Computed example of a mutant assay.
Amino acid sequence: MVANSSGTAQDDIIIEQPEETCSGDDALADGVCIGTTVTVTQTGTGTMTSTVTVPVTFTYAPTLQ
């Protein structure tokens, strides 16, 4: 606000928010990082074994930079 014709006005102050980042190619959705991995489990004994592959999704807080 300027009080008179010879006054000066201050510039607006811009506050930058820190950037949220996730590890690797994990997605950032609604402020949460979402990652996926695959676990492999072998079951059975002797000659009767089976391999089970299970996709796992996990969430974690992003890093602020």
Results as ranks from 00 to 15, higher is better:
14 I>K: 14
32 V>T: 09
29 A>P: 00
28 L>Y: 03
27 A>I: 05
32 V>E: 04
11 D>R: 09
35 G>K: 02
40 V>P: 00
61 A>M: 13
17 Q>P: 04
8 T>S: 13
37 T>G: 07
10 Q>Y: 15
53 T>Q: 12
33 C>I: 02
52 V>G: 03
4 N>I: 01
58 F>H: 07
50 S>G: 13
18 P>M: 07
18 P>I: 07
53 T>C: 08
47 T>A: 12
46 G>V: 06
46 G>E: 07
8 T>N: 10
53 T>I: 15
55 P>Y: 01
10 Q>T: 15
8 T>W: 10
48 M>Y: 01
3 A>R: 12
26 D>K: 02
19 E>P: 00
57 T>Y: 01
35 G>N: 01
55 P>F: 00
43 T>C: 01
3 A>L: 14
28 L>W: 03
23 S>L: 06
55 P>I: 03
50 S>Q: 15
30 D>G: 02
53 T>S: 14
13 I>W: 09
36 T>M: 06
9 A>C: 11
6 S>G: 12
41 T>K: 05
22 C>I: 01
24 G>F: 04
63 T>Q: 13
25 D>K: 00
45 T>D: 10
33 C>A: 02
50 S>E: 15
39 T>V: 13
59 T>R: 10
3 A>F: 11
61 A>S: 13
2 V>W: 09
65 Q>A: 05
40 V>Q: 04
56 V>T: 08
23 S>V: 08
